[in-house]
Design a protein around this nucleic acid. Structure first.
Lengths: 227, 227
DNA sequence: AGCGTTTGTAAAGGTTATGTAAAGAGCCTT
DNA sequence: AAGGCTCTTTACATAACCTTTACAAACGCT
């Protein structure tokens, strides 16, 4: 479990670091929002603990910045007396809010509560080595897709999209889900990359023999791989 | 989004229910842990709001009971002054802890923060999420509607109208409710959009075999899907 | 019946979501 | 540095569809 802490209180950082490492977590530290965003883009973390009041780039700005490109779980820290609107933070995509001074034990419990959900293996659905639907055959391990027994070349992301759609074949997969679960980032207002991936996927999959569309658009909602 | 609230404070339950329903969630209520566990085993919920202090089966016991068979996300409520160990709750598998009296807005934000992560993949089992009435069949997950086994194409809003009417089949759904719950806005004086949606819906649903109208107008009040 | 109000609905209007080509931005590999 | 992949963004066209408008019909009250 890799944690990154962003807080300008050096004392507190070290304290938390020590405590968390005792719990078998690996901890990085930085002291302003800027550094946090930077480090996160370079390393793999499982969770960010983010102080609201910080120099250079405060917690809120760092969060909104981060959310453009990442879906990393975030716990926000507020100093006692800070009457900051917790709701804003939660709506911006924070996962939890903890008031300082915080009991490290509670922090650990909250970290576990969040990562319990986040870290969930998707394996149950992908237990089968292969999935197929109609003339589409998809091998999860080799990441090869065949349509009517002919291999089609998909990029990695296109494969992931198809895999995700296939895992819910017949049901709707929302754009939000596709963004979060496949692209690993939050859906932004004018983000069109999903549309492009779907468009390319449709092109590569080609026509269905029965003339039905393969991927149905549910306007304002998402996409649906037709059975 | 289906929520179940377990709290012996009936007043509070109704208040929360009302608020959450305004946010387009569907809410069930019960007043002790026993009932909660029972209801959860029988219905599909996305989240449980669980009071710690309750008769018959308190929150902790209910939670430990629940966790034997379910992974349902849980937010625990503690009455002010209750010096209960939050950590125990979190370690037992609660996802969050909120102190009463809680700001409903914050509660909603926390619900969203948790369910954002949870998203349980819609399994084939949940395909039973179907409702039917006479010759109308509606699948909630795929958002497909069939009349006499033939698929009819509804817009997203039309589907939502039908779903809402169907959820109260035989009873009146007021124009206010339709406006607030389906369109998500207050009903304005000369707003005719509800009329149009109903009109289009009637057209698409077509005639009933028995000649009865499908959607009855209750003048000055609302509409009623006839059984 | 007469009158004001509410509802039905066709058609027009305006807004938003989506499809897709093409350009741009990153990132390896050479 | 150059070229090749791949993903994202931009830009524009188009389709989907929600709302408004306008008028007709139905209703309920006196």
């Amino acid at each position: 479990m890799n944690i990154i802490i962003a807080d300008d209180d050096i004392e507190l950082c070290n304290l938390l670091k020590q405590y968390l490492e005792n719990e078998n977590m690996s901890v990085d530290i930085c002291h302003n929002g800027q550094d946090a965003v930077e480090k996160i883009s370079q390393n793999e973390y499982n969770l960010l603990i983010l102080d609201v009041m910080m120099p250079v780039l405060n917690g809120f700005d760092a969060l909104s910045n981060l959310r453009k490109s990442s879906d990393l779980p975030v716990i926000m820290l507020t100093a006692k007396g800070e009457k900051i609107d917790r709701i804003v933070g939660l709506e911006m995509g924070a996962d939890d809010y903890v008031a300082k001074p915080c009991d490290p034990r509670e922090l650990v419990a909250r970290i576990r509560a969040i990562t319990r959900r986040t870290h969930k293996p998707i394996t149950s659905a992908v237990n089968n080595e292969e999935t197929s639907l109609g003339d589409i055959q998809l091998s999860h391990s080799t990441r090869v897709v065949k349509v009517s027994n002919k291999v089609i070349e998909l990029t990695s992301t296109e494969f992931d999209f198809l895999e995700r759609l296939l895992s819910n074949a017949g049901n709707i997969v929302t754009r939000e889900q596709l963004s979060r679960e496949v692209l690993g980032k939050r859906l932004q207002a004018f983000d069109r990359s999903i549309d492009m991936h779907i468009s390319n996927l449709r092109k590569k999959l080609g026509e269905r023999q029965d003339g039905l569309e393969r991927i149905k658009t549910i306007r304002g909602n998402g996409y649906q791989l037709l059975k």
